[in-house]
Write a protein that binds this DNA or RNA. Structure first.
Length: 489
RNA sequence: GGUCUCUUGGCCGAGUGGCUAGGCAGCGGUCUGCAAAACCGUGUACAGCGGUUCGACUCCGCUAGAGACCUCCA
């Protein structure tokens, strides 16, 4: 590949050619979930977006280390750095240990990521497993004069930091605006400025998750974990940091501030942010209560869902939009994605049926080049998919006899799907046979009966069998000398 | 209120200063006993108003509408 992957870097607001710091190695850090609730459609977007990045870098030959964390402590219910820890709150409500909450929802997250065919990251560190490192980072920041202690809690001193650095660089903010616009919330009494953020919080008496430190018995601030775990596993400076756009401010901004305060330099070379999934034009999120969990999606058990949608339908749906665009949820869009995905997969299966010609009327090398161009242009999966539909057209036209294609062409088509649809985009053909031999045999028996009836021109019988099987969810296609069938869901 | 983004044909959703996105749905045709699938054909889409330009959906300005962040959120 002469041409290179170009990615949109949030911090420079430009598309930039990706140059790994230490090729052939590439390091990616992505903010994972706070495990206090069931994973929802919103969680699927960054997971799938950065899964594709992970897969593509690997495909290009990089040795990728992909770190995606689990936040299991320190993420507070509402800010001003007050309020209850999200996980503790859930534990209190359900009368279980906080770590039981963590374990349960971590397992749930993994379960649904597996269903979506999201690869496991190379390392999945937990915030609670890195308390010592977080305390070390606080000490460094404090020594450099960018933190202050108050009543056993430690806060980052944004004003001090801003004398020499630009706090707000990533999100495009200036401190004066923050002075003017930060809302006055209760409980910021300890902080010098409302926009200062907690590095360490002293635990209140009822707080369960607490660790000893020289400041107090307490727990770390939310932003600290990512600064610590990214650099611990990827190095003081590393390639790519990803996450949802909603984390841009304050989370990622604070991460930069912490790293620069401690080490005097930024750690991240390329920042990538996926956009939000919306429902009726509004962001799908916890606070609005308008989110749909992945389980509800896969089972159709949410009131806004017309039906269940399979994991691959969801994956395909997400990949049909560019990751930096908002993507609006609707039943119409989902069922369109479902049908489109089915067409794509059917065509792949039908490659076997293409009659082999001696010569080829097509140039498939161009198509392959175009697929690379799409991915190299900031992971433009919608364009990539449109090229795969061109391959679909070629396959179906060849079977219909409108195009000619030789053995090499057929192999190239298979490779195109193998590389781009399956390997890079992580799609998989979902089961269409019954998986049950006896059931399959019975269906074949019925369809052979129908074939006999058709030969007798007993169309009344043949149609009756077809209608009844269709009603049972078996899709039948007649072919020249027989039939094909598959189970619908 | 501050900062920023978006507005594409029935729906979803790419993209570009002049050249077909794609999917789903619709319409016409071919094939089929019929249907399904498939194939072929089919849509004067780029919020509105000005400006720059030989030429703008694409650049600039204004107007209208929607959204995001500024508080936890992927």
């Amino acid at each position: 590949m002469e041409q290179k992957l170009v990615i949109y870097n949030t911090i420079t607001r430009k598309k930039e050619t990706f140059e790994a710091l230490h090729p052939p190695f590439a390091g990616i850090y992505v903010c994972g979930p706070t495990v206090y609730g069931d994973p929802h459609l919103g969680h699927a977007r960054p997971a799938i977006t950065f899964d594709v990045l992970f897969r593509y870098l690997d495909f290009l030959g990089y040795k990728v280390r992909y770190v995606r964390n689990i936040t299991d402590v320190g993420h507070l219910e509402n800010d001003a750095d007050e309020g209850e820890d999200k996980i503790e709150k859930k534990a209190r409500l359900e009368k279980i240990e906080p770590m039981e909450v963590v374990q349960y929802y971590t397992d749930r997250y993994h379960l649904f990521m597996d269903k979506l065919n999201v690869l496991k990251p190379s390392i999945e560190p937990r915030a609670s497993g890195h308390i010592i490192e977080q305390l070390q980072l606080i000490d460094k920041i404090h020594e450099k004069g960018f933190a202050y202690e108050k009543n056993g809690s430690v806060y980052f001193d944004v004003e001090a930091y801003s004398r020499k650095n630009h706090y707000g660089k990533l999100s495009g903010r200036v401190l004066d605006d923050l002075y003017a616009n930060t809302r006055d919330l209760d409980g910021q009494g300890e902080k010098k400025n409302s926009f200062d953020f907690a590095l360490w919080k002293k635990a209140s008496p009822e707080h369960i998750m607490r660790w000893p430190s020289r400041w107090s018995e307490g727990f770390p601030g939310w932003h600290l974990e990512c600064s610590v775990m990214s650099t611990k596993y990827l190095g003081e400076v590393f390639d790519i940091h990803g996450g949802g756009m909603d984390l841009l401010f304050p989370h990622h901004e604070c991460e930069i501030a912490q790293n620069v305060a401690a080490e005097g330099k930024e750690s991240v070379r390329y920042w990538m942010h996926n956009n939000m999934i919306t429902i009726n034009g509004q962001k799908m999120g916890k606070s609005l209560g308008n989110f749909i969990t992945l389980e509800e999606l896969f089972t159709g058990s949410h009131k806004v869902l017309a039906k269940a949608y399979s994991p691959m339908t969801i994956r395909f749906f997400i990949l049909q939009a560019h990751y930096r665009s908002t993507l609006d949820f609707s039943n119409e869009a989902l069922s369109a994605a479902e049908k489109g995905f089915e067409r794509l997969m059917d065509a792949y299966k039908n490659i076997e049926k293409i009659p082999v010609s001696d010569n080829s009327s097509l140039n498939l090398t161009d198509l392959r080049t175009k697929c690379f161009e799409a991915l190299n242009d900031d992971l433009n999966t919608p364009i990539l998919i449109s090229h795969l539909f061109e391959a679909v057209r070629i396959i179906n036209s060849s079977i219909a006899g409108n195009e000619k294609i030789n053995k090499e062409g057929i192999d190239e088509l298979k490779k195109l799907f193998g590389d781009f649809a399956f390997n890079v985009m992580g799609l998989v053909a979902e089961g269409s046979s019954s998986g049950n031999q006896i059931l399959s045999d019975v269906i074949e028996l019925m369809l052979n009966e129908r074939l006999e009836a058709k030969k007798r021109k007993d169309f009344e019988s043949s149609d009756r069998i077809r209608n009844k099987l269709t009603a049972l969810g078996i899709e039948i296609k007649d072919t020249k000398d027989g039939f094909e069938w598959k189970l619908k869901n």
